[in-house]
């Protein structure tokens, strides 16, 4: 698997700095699970964070009581949220951490119709105006033509889609900036499953989808 379309420096650096909201962080983290190249870049970004902390001049006194408390284990590190490791022989569509957000792999989820044969699973994330959802687009089907008020990032997890002169496959990220109006089409080999994150609602350019209630959530 060779990834051709990466998350890009804007998102990767913001993720490294910790300034992205949860939904977009989820997309970047999932891409990182699938992309060794971007993992190496993230390490560089985090090294920058380390240097900036390290070279900060400081005249604050060391909190001796806190040092003792930590060494004595007064403050236990809370590990309750750590997920159990999955069996390694599974061929999983959803890498961590997406698997945890969705609550299972793609074939076990409760998909809901989004109209036009497209199915979706909304993912619960915190952050004003940003939404993350899994989409399943039937092979050869297209998503209705739409524009954006904000950025829309789409990460392919299974199958492929074609959009504006490029093919996107597992691990690839397509980014549509606010000025883009497009109509992505799923590849013929299988249904395309992808993670779509938008930082504002999409605006549909054709009248039909406006009537499809479920799509209004997108």
């Amino acid at each position: 698997m060779t990834i051709k379309h990466h998350v890009g420096d804007d998102l990767l650096l913001s993720y490294g700095a910790g300034t992205l909201d949860e939904a977009m962080s989820l997309l970047v983290a999932t891409h990182l699970a699938l992309c060794p190249t971007c993992r190496a870049d993230l390490e560089l970004a985090e090294a920058v964070g380390g240097v900036l902390i390290d070279r900060t001049p400081t005249d604050t006194a060391v909190d001796e009581a806190m040092l003792e408390a930590v060494l004595d284990g007064a403050c236990q590190d809370d590990n309750a949220g750590a997920p159990a490791l999955r069996a390694s022989n599974e061929a999983l569509v959803l890498p961590q951490p997406l698997y945890n957000y969705a609550g299972g792999d793609a074939d076990t989820l409760r998909w809901r119709s989004a109209g036009g044969g497209i199915r979706q699973v909304l993912l619960k994330t915190v952050g004003a105006g940003t939404t993350a959802r899994l989409l399943s687009i039937p092979a050869r089907k297209s998503v209705p033509r739409h524009g954006h008020r904000g950025v829309e990032a789409t990460l392919v997890l299974a199958g492929s889609f074609y959009d504006r002169d490029a093919w996107y496959r597992r691990g690839d990220v397509g980014i549509a900036s606010p000025e883009v109006v497009h109509r992505p089409v799923a590849g013929p080999e299988q249904d395309c499953i992808c993670l779509a994150v938008t930082d504002a609602r999409l605006e549909f350019r054709t009248p039909i989808p406006r009537l499809l209630q479920p799509f209004h959530g997108i």
Binding site: G18, E22, A33
Partner: peptide, 14 residues
Amino acid sequence: ERRPEFDPQDPALQ
């Protein structure tokens, strides 16, 4: 917020 991170032990990790 939660901080989504990839898991180096994930069998799906490329």
